[in-house]
Amino acid sequence: MTSLEYALFPGCVASVREFGYELAIRNVFKALDIKLRKVEDFSCCQPACLVHSIDYVKGLALTSRNLAVAEETGLPMLTLCSSCYGNLSRAKHLLDHNSDLKDEVNDLLAKAGRTYRGDVKIEHVVTVLHDESMLPILEKKISNPLSKLKAAPFYGCHIFMPAKYSKFDDPEFPHKLDDLIEITGAESLDYNEKTSCCIGCGSFFGEVSEEASVLLSEMIIGSAKEKGADCIVTTCPFCIMQLEIGQIKLREQGKDFGVPVIHYVDLLGLSMGFKPDELGFDLRRINMEPVVSRL
C-alpha cells in the first residue's frame, strides 16, 4: 500500500546539478496527492564507490546516518535515484543481518547523536508507482497518452544489484519500468543494453578512462536508437548525466545520436499533461525535440 507522505531523499546529483528531476517529482507527486516532506538533515547517500572504498565501516555509517534521520521522521524514504536506492538498501540489509556491524556503525553514529534502529522503509519512485494500489490511480490521471512515443527503458545498475538486498525486480529480466512506461501510452522497447551499467561511478570517481566511458555510452545509446527509440527513460539522474555527457562527447567525434534521456517522472508528467518546463526540460543537455514533437 502506498503511503500518503514520504521523506524526500533527492540525493546529491538531483540536489546540486540535475534539479529538473526534483522539480518534476514535486509537481507530479503533488498531482497524485502524495506529500513529499523536505527533511533538513540528509546528506549524500554515500555510494560504495566513494568512502566505502577506502573505509568500509565509516562509509556505511555515513549511509546509515541518513536512514537514522529518516527513522526520526516516522515516514518511509523516497528517492528518485537508482544509486541512492541501491546504496541505502544495501546498508540497511548489511546492518539488519549483522549485529556486530550494526553495533560498530552505531558507535560511530553516536558521535553524531544518532542511532540506526532498522525500521525505515526505503522506496524508489518506481516501487511506489508500481504498487498495485497506485496503478489504477495512474491510469485515471493520464490525460495525454503518449501513444506516438517509443521509449527505451534503462534501469540503472544499483537499483537491483544485488537482488538479494534490494528485491526491486528481476535483475536479468526486469519489467517494472517497462510496465510503467506502457501505462503512459508510450511503447516500451526491448533492446540489448536495457540492464547495462552507465559506468558513471567508474568514470566520475574511479579510473575508467574517458575513452572507455564514451564507448560504453555509444553502445547503450546506439542499441536503443537502432530499435527506433525516441528517448531513453531511466530511474536515475546519475545515468542521465552520464548518457547525456557521453552523447556530447560523441557529437564532438562526429557521431550525433540526439537521443533525449529522461527520468520516468518526466514521462509520467508529460502523460499527465504537464508542460515540458514544469518538468525541468530547459535544463537538459540534449535537444528534447524528439520527445516534445510526439506529445
Partner: peptide, 25 residues
C-alpha cells in the same frame, strides 16, 4: 578525485554546492 569529493561531503554533506545550470533557452 576521492579527496575532492570527500572534502565536499565533509564541508557541506553533499558532493558540491548547488550549481547554476546552463539552460537550453
Amino acid at each position: 578525485v576521492y579527496d575532492d569529493f570527500i572534502n565536499g561531503i565533509l564541508e557541506r554533506g553533499f558532493i558540491s554546492e548547488p550549481q547554476e545550470v546552463r539552460a537550453r533557452g
